[in-house]
Design a protein around this nucleic acid. Structure first.
Ligand SMILES: [Mn+2]
Ligand SMILES: [Mn+2]
Ligand SMILES: [Zn+2]
Ligand SMILES: [Zn+2]
Lengths: 147, 147
DNA sequence: CAAACTTTTGCAACTAAGTTGCAAAGATAC
DNA sequence: GTATCTTTGCAACTTAGTTGCAAAAGTTTG
């Protein structure tokens, strides 16, 4: 349960993020953004559809995630089982330019997926001819809670 | 175009792989396996359905890929756009136990996905509590041909 | 090599995921 | 508060993936 002050702070943060991304303030966007701010795990499309207080149409969720991606509010996490998860970007990400060069962890027991913001992706030496632009590192195993 | 000797060698290899995996020899399995042996890129389900000489049912392709996975004949490659690709395992993979600890490269221009067998996944130091079992590294950028 | 047996395949029918066009509802600007 | 522009929900659609089942193909045995 959130204290009133924290609640106000979070609502302000939501408005800030939407405003600096030049997005109009709608219930759907606020709810979905709140979900991300409240959760320390990455969320699947499914989670988002299920967990908002008010139900939003599938299509609305798709479109919201898409525009949040474009604006650099969230980033995707590819997982071995081919289910995309979404997580908040840190402040450095701007419109059309992500800088999420951290490692992700997926728990095989509980399925929780987290950003390890402090673990940078290691440098990878590639054979001649390959020009790398992006390196995704996804570690799977058991998380703190499931050990 | 394959020389007759190479052709015979490949057909033998196909039979060998199916036999040591204790799979019965069927046209579908032979065709799909041949596709993997002929291609130096990873293949999507779609590619496989499209490229076999004889057309096989979607369901057959799904089931074949599934059993090839279980038997350690192929492994999956997760990509940022959430499309699974499949590639041959090296000989070290056995039934239910994969050892594909190499880096994968996805070209953003042509979409080709390759196993960089010689580039091992780097060690990743995780915060306390996380127990890693598997590390997936997918590098995307431009490949040799597209530079 | 043919009968008996086992496994695989294709089909139909289904669920889930994702996309598009459009009119109505909502947000913003004046 | 009204005009304008944006977003939403709905319907309708495409694509991806799953399951049960009977027919077809593969394997084993004598
Ligand atoms: Mn992340
Ligand atoms: Mn590989
Ligand atoms: Zn866990
Ligand atoms: Zn390329």
């Amino acid at each position: 349960m959130l204290f009133p002050t924290n609640f106000i702070m979070m609502e302000n943060q939501i408005l800030n993020i939407l405003h600096r991304s030049q997005l109009s303030i709608t219930d759907g966007r606020k709810s979905i953004l709140r979900l991300f701010l409240e959760s320390d795990n990455a969320l699947a499309h499914h989670d988002i559809e299920a967990r908002t207080q008010v139900k939003f149409d599938r299509v609305t969720v798709y479109r919201t995630l898409q525009i949040f991606m474009e604006k650099g509010i969230i980033h995707t996490i590819p997982t071995a089982d081919n289910s995309i998860k979404y997580a908040l970007c840190r402040d450095e990400c701007e419109q059309g330019h992500h800088h999420d060069d951290h490692v992700h962890f997926v728990c095989k027991k509980c399925g929780s997926t987290v950003c390890l913001e402090d673990v940078h992706v290691p440098a990878v030496r590639l054979p001649k001819g390959f020009k790398p632009q992006q390196v995704e590192v996804v570690v799977s195993g058991t998380c703190k809670e499931c050990s």
